[in-house]
Nucleic acid binder design. Structure first.
Lengths: 265, 265
DNA sequence: GACCCGGCGATCGAATATGGTCGGTTCCGA
DNA sequence: TCGGAACCGACCATATTCGATCGCCGGGTC
């Protein structure tokens, strides 16, 4: 049932409000701008929708966006001043979302950037997403066109991701076109890396399971090198980063055979 | 437009309305234009159909289309604030939490009651919890004394649980002392049951993985019998329910060898 | 064969939704 | 504390949808 553009259905008002609620429940809170772009409506219209929904007590309006009512459940301020490089991550995720087509089967790793990416895939049709991240799974749980498969494994609380032998084994049997992974550092010398051994194992397994590995890394990670190497440079087919990344490192990465796409927030 | 004659003559109209209902149930909501094109009728005709169906309470009309009744308010079944038997579920979870000791390894199934139970285990020490529920995992993610292991599997969105062959296989290798499962019905005749086949498979695997199966079921489920049997009565070692459960059924369960504990909210 | 009747589609005024813009307010960083 | 940027509510023009009326078609009846 994929007419044209994903999610660009002619849908009507009540359905749009339903989608807004779903998006909010998946993400805890969202800015007005995010919502408007997600449901393909103007900010004025979304503002009206939020007003109506808030009148019914279905959400809480805040300056600049909305969040779940009574929700101490998840304190995720939509304007995350605590998060570093939020705008950059969003822009990177936005571009990465454009790489995903209806009917794709992809692997999504853990991390805030991949979470952002997942949130942008709710409108896709006939999508299969393999992930070890609770955040990714939750973001896509209500997406009608997405089949979400989780790896098993031990839960690593702080990052809400599954790791360990079980996670790696469950990935061993799968093969997909593309894996989107994040990691804590990416350099021309050692490729993707992460400071945690268990996480590294899963990231390696994810890279193994995919024909193409696409690295999502904001500028704070480019040139960084942490303890465990996960994906060597020649296995990274594309790096998506933002304009603040050190040009020298990007050049070195290109020289190492990595395609690099730079987005501007 | 006489409603009586509609049943006598299986004309095109009745069939078209059936199809409209089917489409709506499949998609949740559809715009008038989509429906008209789907059933190959004019928008005016579909509008008439919608009016008639809405009069019977079979759907909710909205400007621009229609959706399933109740749509906006009971969107997220698991986050139900006004859910049924909330106090009872809490009391059941409270008692069940008392059955869990430091150092235990347990299996927690999906459902709101097990979610409540998980939330009461955050203070335990040296606990290992195997679960297929995203809600349980999330509830224990920040608990310092709990090691959470998730089964893999396909995500079943509405209940936030992992199901399917992968989930069952990952449970095959585990063995724990106790499994806490909920299900949609429990009766002396057929034990625990659930209306979904995939969920049933996982519940069975969970029961297999545990030495003891403890069923958590509020009174609305006692005596209920849904399509797929998951755990036979003689494998349920303890049923925790609330005081509003039908006494006859509880007696029958006891006669079947099930220990029954009744909590008062 | 003429008539009636239920269902369907087309059309038009009315109601509603949408998006752009303007002025006042709130928020954030300096 | 202050200035700028972002956000909000309100107004208006436009686009879309709704409800009602009408005419057409096919089948059944007298």
């Amino acid at each position: 049932m994929s007419d044209h553009d994903a999610g660009r259905r002619p849908g009507f008002a009540a359905e749009r409000r339903e989608r807004i609620l779903r998006l909010l429940r998946a993400n805890g809170s969202m800015s007005l701008r995010e919502l408007a772009s997600a449901v393909h409506a103007s900010e004025v219209t979304v503002r009206r929708d939020l007003r109506a929904l808030a009148a019914d007590g279905l959400l809480d309006r805040r300056h600049g966006g909305a969040m779940l009512p009574g929700g101490l459940t998840r304190e995720a301020p939509y304007r995350e001043k605590t998060g570093v490089a939020t705008a950059e991550k969003a822009a990177i995720a936005e571009y990465a979302a454009g790489l995903v087509e209806d009917g794709d089967a992809i692997v999504l790793g853990g991390g805030t950037t991949t979470h952002e990416l997942a949130r942008r895939l709710t409108g896709r049709r006939d999508l299969t997403v393999v992930t070890n991240s609770l955040l990714v799974a939750e973001a896509l749980a209500d997406a009608p066109g997405a089949e979400v498969v989780m790896t098993g494994g031990a839960l690593r609380g702080p990052i809400r991701a599954l790791v360990g032998g079980a996670a790696e084994r469950s990935l061993a049997g799968t093969h997909v076109r593309r894996a989107f992974v994040s990691g804590n550092g990416v350099s021309a010398a050692r490729g993707l890396s992460t400071p945690n051994m268990a996480v590294a194992g899963v990231d390696r397994a994810m890279a193994e399971a995919a024909a193409e590995v696409i690295a999502l890394a904001d500028h704070t990670k480019v040139g960084a090198d942490t303890m465990f190497q996960t994906v060597p440079p020649d296995r990274v087919s594309l790096l998506v980063t933002d304009a603040a990344a050190p040009p020298a490192e990007l050049a070195a990465l290109r020289a190492a055979g990595v395609r690099v796409h730079v987005v501007t927030p």
